[in-house]
């Protein structure tokens, strides 16, 4: 069965980068433009992993991670942050909110695949 990955990023190019990198390895991708949309798409789809940006409109990445971790159903969902915010404070904050991995843009697609495979293979 194909593993489903939810990508939340307001940049269409980043959504495409990640989608291209992961779909070639057989993952099913669901892309959305902000945290609000991601929260809406979580219940209806069997999401195995979330890749999220932090700077997003409506619900940002931090709020998205917090909301997910507060929900018992998604407490164990692997979350990979993909952000241009690269200061120690931001990384700490991301991890404190419940992210499992933190990748800084610009990213190597191989590294994204490696992180995904750590949780899904």
């Amino acid at each position: 069965m194909r593993r489903v990955i939810l990508i939340a990023d307001d940049s269409p190019t980043i959504r495409k980068f990640v989608s291209v990198a992961l779909s070639t390895k057989g993952y099913e991708i669901i892309a959305c433009a902000d945290g609000m949309e991601a929260l809406e798409k979580l219940p209806g789809n069997k999401i195995d992993l979330l890749i999220t940006d932090l700077n997003m409109p409506n619900v940002d990445g931090f709020q998205l991670i917090k909301s997910i971790r507060e929900n018992e159903e998604y407490k164990e969902l692997p979350i990979i942050v993909l952000s241009s915010l690269g200061s120690s404070e931001d990384i700490h904050r991301g991890l404190e909110y419940g992210a499992n991995s933190y990748l800084i843009k610009p990213f190597d697609p191989k590294r994204v695949l490696y992180e995904v495979s750590k949780y899904l293979n």
Partner: peptide, 16 residues
């Protein structure tokens, strides 16, 4: 090709 995809991410950075 991988390096091109990394370089193309400059678009996202400049957009920000």
């Amino acid at each position: 090709a991988t390096n091109i995809t990394i370089s193309l991410q400059v678009q996202d950075i400049t957009a920000q």
